[in-house]
Nucleic acid binder design. Structure first.
Length: 576
RNA sequence: GCCCCGGUAGCUCAGCUGGACAGAGCAGCGGACUUCUAAUCCGCAGGUCGCAGGUUCGAACCCUGCCCGGGGCGCCA
């Protein structure tokens, strides 16, 4: 299969070639040419700013460099103009005929012209990772939705992806849960809503431990028994895990999220002593205040505790074991961790330890801003959490209201199906369309926006095209759409065609920077361009020849929208 | 006290290795459905990019200081 290059990259390579020829004495150390999209279409489609940077380094006149460069870059087939402007900008305008051809070429390609940047590379993505015995709430949605988009994006770019749900299934809370389960359990409640009941007994047990020292001690004993493999506690623990996984799975199905692995912390339990031994033999282990730690003061990261004073291991130890195991088993180039911002220091710590141990893997913490409520942070103990299940229900309910008013003739089961895709899509898009690192304050209104820059806007554009295409197929069964060249006569068509052909740049950018919002922005612009087009020309009433070309163009736009939404984990129904 | 983020239009946010007069959505105002989905489109209005310096041909973006908000800082994860 043909391997495509993105347009900006293709132009940058042209520039590089000309530069190497123009400056046989060599370019500045570390210099590599770059071409970017213009901010303003009046300046062209792409621009190169290298002349200014080079002028400084080579002590030459930027306009002169730009002039020479522009002359060497002339390529009438691809570029309708190459012009020098301002202090030394080189502006490129693509030839609409070239764009149209490109469109056709990429249309035949499974990844719509996206380069296989990840060919031969493996990436492990660790995301979602809820705690066993606690219901998932709105705090989990960002990790799940962003992690899943990164998962899809990487696969699309040719990476081998191992998605792993690193469940919080092992830790001190289980002592309290075991005790609470034995004393406070309501069997009916457990049957009705297992995880909610498990959480309830945990909270009750936790509260009792606050006022009753002996209760806390008893919980510690239960934990020790569990860790030593006590059959009864182990069986209960397994039950907690199974029940929780079952409930999480319902949420994941609704969100269309699948994992390759569900390896919780407990999976690495037997490896923990080995981690310590390895640190020991690497000379990194130090005793401090009774605990075993790795000293990271030099890196200004404090100390990383790998064995507690009481002899127990903690999360840093588990995370190290997890890295070792993943590296051994999957040989990944990169491991991505998608969690909220609070864990930055922890990740820096154990990343540094891995580096000291010489682990040959790139560890990346993709963190996102913590979700807050308008009245402040939320927590289980304050009782102001919004459960994920409730959130999904509400999203679908609001979408259904809208579907019923806008498509009253649609059969009811289809209305529900559309409402599901639209409601869940809106929710996901709300998270994916902004910079992950910005703070987010949860509001129902924002999370479930159904107009403006929202998933339903994109889904609507897509469904409109499908509807036009279906009507066209019914009215003009003789038309050869597949054989028609995409329309590129009118300015609106050229704008739309160019946007469509830039899809790979958005995908690559989103993947490389771990920023799904780059793709979301792009798709929104594509849908906007389509909506303008839809408004300004007739389709079914356009003349023979023109009609097929327009169908060809919008069909490709629809496919691009659908593919792009798919990469964000959002469905694109045929009708909405 | 130290470290990490954020501060852009009334509100919610983009702004992709510094680039050409700062962009959307919502809300507001004015227009467009006897054509294919008006969940739409077109137009108007709205900003000292937290503040003050600095680097640069060029700064919302880089550096320094300060102000405000969020988070983190040894045995929770």
């Amino acid at each position: 299969m043909k391997n495509f290059n993105t347009i900006d990259q293709e132009l940058a390579e042209k520039v590089q070639t000309v530069l190497v020829n123009t400056f046989p004495e060599g370019l500045p150390e570390g210099f590599s040419s770059s071409v970017v999209k213009t901010a303003d279409a009046r300046n062209g489609d792409y621009q190169c700013n290298d002349a200014m940077a080079l002028a400084k380094a080579l002590r030459k006149n930027p306009r002169e460099i730009a002039g020479n460069l522009a002359a060497g870059l002339a390529d009438p087939e691809m570029l309708s103009s190459v012009e020098v402007a301002g202090p030394g900008f080189i502006n490129f305008r693509l030839n609409p005929a070239w764009v149209a051809k490109r469109l056709v070429d990429t249309d035949a390609h499974a990844a719509r012209g996206t380069p296989a940047a990840g060919e031969g590379k493996t990436v492990v993505i660790d995301y979602s990772s809820p705690n066993v015995a606690k219901p998932m709430h709105i705090g989990h949605i960002r990790s799940t939705v962003i992690g899943n988009a990164l998962d899809r994006l990487h696969r699309f770019c040719g990476y081998t992806v191992i998605s792993d749900n690193h469940l919080g299934d092992w830790g001190t809370q289980f002592g309290l849960i075991l005790l609470g389960y034995r004393h406070f359990l309501n069997a009916d409640a457990l049957a009705a809503s297992p995880v909610q009941e498990l959480e309830r007994v945990y909270v009750e047990s936790y509260q009792k431990s606050k006022e009753d020292e002996s209760w806390l001690e008893a919980a510690r004993q239960e934990l020790v028994k569990l860790q030593q493999g006590d059959a009864e506690n182990l069986a209960l623990w397994e039950k907690f895990v199974t029940l929780s996984l079952g409930e999480f799975e319902k949420i994941y199905q609704r969100l269309d999220v699948r994992f390759d692995l569900h390896r919780g912390e407990s999976f690495y339990n037997d490896d923990l002593p080995g981690v310590l031994a390895r640190l020991e033999s690497a000379g990194l282990l130090v005793e401090s205040e009774g605990a075993q730690v790795v000293d990271l003061e030099e890196e200004k990261l404090g100390v990383c505790i790998v064995r507690k004073r009481d002899g127990g291991f903690n999360y840093a130890t588990t995370d190290l074991a997890t890295v070792f195991s993943r590296v051994r088993e999957f040989k990944p180039e990169t491991i991505l961790y998608v969690t909220d911002e609070r864990q930055q220091r922890h990740f820096k710590q154990f990343f540094t330890v891995c580096e000291k141990l010489g682990e040959a893997v790139s560890l990346q913490h993709v963190w996102f801003g913590l979700m807050r409520l308008p009245e402040g942070t939320f927590s289980t103990r304050q009782g102001n959490v919004i459960k994920l299940e409730v959130l999904l229900d509400e999203a679908e309910r609001r979408a259904l209201e809208m579907v019923k008013t806008s498509s009253p003739d649609m059969p009811e089961d289809q209305q529900r199906e559309v409402a599901r895709a639209v409601g869940i899509g809106a929710l996901k898009y709300a998270d994916l369309s902004q910079n992950p690192q910005s703070l987010v304050t949860f509001t129902w209104e924002k999370a479930m926006a159904l107009d403006g820059n929202s998933a339903p806007y994109l889904q609507y554009a897509h469904a409109r095209i499908r509807s036009v295409l279906d009507k066209h197929a019914a009215q003009f069964p003789e038309d050869d759409v597949a054989g028609a060249a995409p329309a590129a006569e009118l300015p609106v068509e050229q704008v739309l065609g160019l946007k469509a052909v830039q899809f790979p740049e958005a995908v690559i950018g989103a993947t490389r920077h771990y920023r799904p919002n780059y793709l979301a922005d792009y798709l929104y612009e594509l849908a906007q361009n389509y909506s303008t087009y839809h408004q300004s020309v007739p389709f079914l009433k356009s003349e023979d020849g023109v009609r097929e070309s327009r169908m060809r163009l919008i069909r490709m736009v629809a496919d691009t929208l659908k593919t792009g939404l798919g990469l964000l984990g959002i469905e694109a129904p045929e009708r909405i």
